[in-house]
């Protein structure tokens, strides 16, 4: 019981200071989990991130679940994840309720019009970063362009793209391997 409480508090604290998500969380986890609490080795954390990135869901949540599972099994994984997302829920709920009241003020509207431009650039930058690790050859470039074109032109659910592109990855790789043998 004490361990569960400690898991919750530790992950709650990390949820409060983790700006940006994804790999931005790595140094915070290394300090809290590896150095302070000694709950896991550095190598394990790197593994958790690697696998957390290639499993569905938010990377930071996946890593929290891993560490919680390692300490206290399934209950531990649930508690640590709830700890990590609790600050987000509180902070966003407060901001969202305030924003609705301020939304008719002219300065607020002007600020958000500027901010939307910034979001546009931030996401463009994210696309460039993800593209660097994902687009390695002409096949992957083709997949990216096809998905982009269809997603812009239609309202097809992203789920369809995820399933088809995963299958395409497996098929292309197995055909390529056949070429290598020849």
């Amino acid at each position: 019981m004490k361990m569960l409480l400690e898991l919750y508090i530790t992950f709650f604290r990390m949820g409060c200071i983790a700006f940006g998500g994804g790999y931005a969380l790595l140094p915070i986890i290394q300090r809290e989990i590896v150095e302070n609490k000694k709950w896991a080795e550095n190598d394990e954390i790197i593994d958790y991130f690697a696998v957390g990135q290639c499993t569905p869901g938010v990377i930071a949540v996946n890593v929290s679940t891993f560490i919680g599972y390692k300490k206290k099994g399934i209950i531990g994984s649930i508690i640590s994840t709830l700890g990590f997302i609790s600050p987000s829920i509180i902070i966003i709920a407060v901001i969202a309720s305030f924003l609705a009241e301020f939304s008719h003020i002219k300065a607020v509207n002007n600020a958000f019009a500027g901010i939307r431009v910034c979001v546009c650039v931030l996401i463009f930058n994210a696309v460039l970063k993800i593209g660097k690790t994902g687009i390695k050859d002409k096949f992957t470039l083709l997949i990216c362009l096809i998905v982009f074109a269809i997603a812009v032109a239609t309202n097809i659910s992203p789920i369809i793209f995820v399933i088809c592109s995963g299958a395409a990855g497996i098929i292309i790789k197995s055909i390529k391997k056949g070429e290598d043998i020849k």
């Binding site: 290639c54 696309v127 993800i130 390695k136 990216c144 998905v147 997603a151 990855g169 292309i172």
Partner: peptide, 17 residues
């Protein structure tokens, strides 16, 4: 690993859209 060979560029395209 092979599924991710296809998933990563698709994810890039989706976020690009």
């Amino acid at each position: 690993n092979n599924a991710f060979y296809g998933l990563r560029p698709a994810s890039t395209g989706l976020i690009g859209a």
